[in-house]
Design a binder for these strands. Structure first.
Length: 648
RNA sequence: GCCGAGGUAGCCUAGCUGGUUGGGGCGGCAGACUCAUAAUCUGCAGGUCGCGGGUUCAAAUCCCGCCCUCGGCACCA
């Protein structure tokens, strides 16, 4: 028995193609294994707790539960449309999940892995509450950059434990926060170092995740697992606290399994099943470090494989919701009326599972038209309609070499799937379709029809066997489309196994076949490309008034001196003559400009930008530059201009 | 900075436990065919396998150095 899970989607936003990179291959994996006769439980669910959901709900003026329910419904709708069929899709706000989580945490405590510690936490006296996680802004104690309460998100990127941040301010009201002592609870992660090292050396999965984890395991710190928040699972040892969202979320794998099957104990307590987690690389840390340690500490079974998908790029650009490099599954893909199977194929076939996948509408159109339709769809349709038109019923007599070819494809596909090599598997399907096309072409059945009907029928029988194999082998990848084709040849796919590809029926009776796929015309993707382009160019949707613009003190400046900021690869410290003074400005251009070439250069300066400290260096202003694929290109005046001239 | 992945024809990509002429796909060009959604089939053109050394009878494949790209560096999807 196998349990297959997918990383839980976080219920504060809609699904985009990046999410599908995990869910589609997992679904394909499960479908193949089932057709190979394996018993598989496949579960997932919405991750509903945590600060961002509370903040977003506040912003939208709804209760967290309403927000969560909205996205939960959205997830289920999209998964259904894409034929991603979980046995159970749960929600971490449900009672059963809270109960399982509390039981789990109690067990951790009983086993001595939770301890309490007094820490200094930021408290806002105006809002009258402690400021957890992202409610607090301040300065990173390591690199002195402005940072969020839980992470130095602009500077060194370090994780900040609660209370570590310097000069904290309340993000809600902006007032200065004070430190107050507060008792919180920690998970003794460092006690698991040796266990994890050993465990990770045996853990199966994709190399990308395992390599990271092996690096991380050398530097483990205990983990604060409670928060001052109302929204979440109550911490059993102190009901005034709530568990950190990353504690309860993975426990969803257990609580959802409980709902999916009454054999859950075999899986999670008795170690009688393989547990395979499909995740995005971004959450490898949680699944390779925190999660096994938690399971070990609470006497549960351990995962046998972590399968991490690579990143998704959009039109060659690094995926970024804020920059607009994103494709929304429901609003953009599905609403445009494309066959969901096309997207499944694209995701599975573009490249290896652990490499970056580039989503481009042009490539999408080409892959669908050339591979799915011209190679696979065309073979299926040409042979089915040829057989139907000329014979109606076909006496099945299949050559050994045809069966051998089919068996070769089947073996290659199944072996690849077991190794999470979805591209190799789907390529093998296309190769078999291509083989079918060559075979039929060479048979010249349409000529034989006039001279030797019996031989023509033999050729058709061989092709029908190939078609049957294709429909079965492709079913896990493009289920809806294959069901349609199978119907025309009287095949019930839902009850087929992979071995059926080699079973030869006595007679095949054809129905009139329909075109299995609709081509993608360039006009179909033009609007989608335009949507992306308009977002790429970074246009802000709201208009500004001239008054708004006048608030900006833009002027020409002349670089007086430039030097790199020590310890930083991006930052350059500049002294810029802006007319009445020489201004110190820190700019992130050191990777693309040298101090020498900057010296004496005329630049455009935003002079009244709120001062900031970057890497401990004060910056009062900003140098304007074009963002060309993430690299700055400085804006310079067309002619020699006096420093200080206003820009209108 | 440290760590990881990668640099193969216009584009994508296989090969990388060293060994017959570096495979495949897209795009391009030329034919063939008409059962098929101008689909299919055959053939052709196109490569200093990032750069420089080294090991070897033999290197895209192993070793060393360098350059470039992308990603990770703990709660950001």
């Amino acid at each position: 028995m196998k349990l297959v899970t997918c990383g839980l989607p976080y219920a504060n936003g809609k699904l985009h193609i990046g999410h599908l990179r995990t869910y589609v291959p997992a679904d394909v994996y499960v479908r193949f294994l089932r057709m190979a006769g394996e018993k598989v439980v496949f579960i997932c669910g919405s991750d509903c707790h945590g600060t961002p959901i509370v903040v977003n709900a506040e912003k939208e003026g709804v209760k967290p539960q309403e927000l969560v329910d909205k996205y939960h419904d959205h997830f289920q709708r999209v998964f259904k449309a894409l034929s991603i069929n979980f046995d159970f899709f749960g929600k971490t706000t449900e009672n059963y999940h809270h109960e399982r989580t509390r039981e789990f945490v109690k067990k951790l405590a009983e086993n001595g892995y939770i301890y309490k510690k007094e820490i200094e936490l930021a408290y806002c006296e105006k809002c009258n509450r402690f400021l957890p996680d992202r409610y607090v802004e301040g300065i990173c104690p390591y690199c002195k950059t402005p940072a969020r309460g839980d992470e130095c998100d602009q500077g060194c990127g370090r994780h900040l434990e609660p209370g570590e941040i310097l000069d904290p301010k309340c993000k809600i009201c902006g007032s200065k926060a004070v430190f107050r002592k507060q008792t919180h609870y920690f998970f003794n992660l460092s006690a698991f170092q040796e266990f994890l090292r050993e465990y990770l050396s045996k853990l199966s999965g994709t190399e990308n995740a395992l390599n990271y984890a092996r690096e991380w395991v050398g530097n483990l710190r205990d983990w604060c697992i409670t928060r001052n928040l109302e929204w979440g699972v109550r911490f059993p040892l102190d009901e005034s606290l709530v568990l950190y969202v990353w504690v309860d979320a993975p426990i969803g794998y257990i609580s959802f399994t409980e709902r999916a099957t009454d054999e859950w104990k075999k899986i999670w307590l008795e170690g009688k099943a393989e547990i395979v987690h499909f995740i995005g690389l971004d959450i490898a840390y949680h699944h390779c470090i925190f999660w096994p340690a938690m399971l070990k500490g609470a006497n549960y079974s351990l995962p046998s494989a972590i399968v991490a998908s690579g990143m998704v790029k959009i039109e060659g650009k690094t995926f970024s919701k804020s920059r607009g490099y994103v494709v929304w599954v429901e609003d953009e893909y599905l609403k445009s009326g494309f066959n969901p199977d096309y997207l499944r194929y694209y995701i599975v076939n573009y490249t290896s599972h652990d490499k970056d996948l580039n989503f481009s509408w042009d490539v999408f159109r080409d892959k669908v038209n050339n591979e799915v339709i011209a190679t696979l769809g065309n073979f299926l349709f040409r042979i089915l309609s040829f057989a139907w038109k000329n014979f109606g019923k076909v006496q099945m007599e299949v050559d050994g070499e045809i069966l051998a070819e089919i068996e070769k494809a089947k073996d290659k596909i199944l072996n690849s799937i077991r190794k999470w090599e979805f591209k190799t598997a789907s390529d093998a399907v296309m190769e078999l379709a291509s083989f079918g096309n060559v075979y039929f072409q060479n048979s010249k059945a349409w000529e034989l029809l006039k001279s030797d009907r019996a031989r023509a029928m033999k050729a058709v029988a061989n092709c029908l066997q190939i078609a049957k194999a294709l429909v079965i082998l492709c079913y896990p990848i493009m289920p809806k489309s294959m069901e349609k084709v199978a119907e025309a040849m009287g095949l019930k796919l839902s009850s087929c196994s992979l071995d059926d590809v080699l079973k030869v029926d006595e007679v095949v009776e054809l129905k009139k076949p329909e075109l299995p796929f609709k081509k993608i015309e360039s006009e179909d993707i033009e609007p989608l490309k335009r949507v992306l382009l308009s977002r790429f160019s970074g246009r802000t949707s709201s208009e500004v008034t001239l008054e708004d613009f006048k608030k900006l003190d833009l002027r020409v400046g002349k670089v007086v001196s430039a030097e790199r900021v020590e310890g930083s690869k991006k930052l350059m410290k500049l002294l810029v003559d802006i007319g009445e003074e020489n201004r110190q400005i820190v700019a992130g251009i050191a990777e693309n400009y040298s101090p020498e070439e900057l010296n004496g250069k005329l630049v455009v300066v935003l002079a009244n930008l709120k001062p900031a400290r970057l890497m401990g260096v004060e910056s009062r202003g900003m140098i304007l530059a074009a963002d060309v694929d993430g690299k700055p290109v400085l804006l310079v005046p067309d002619r020699e201009v006096k420093p200080g001239e206003r820009i209108k």
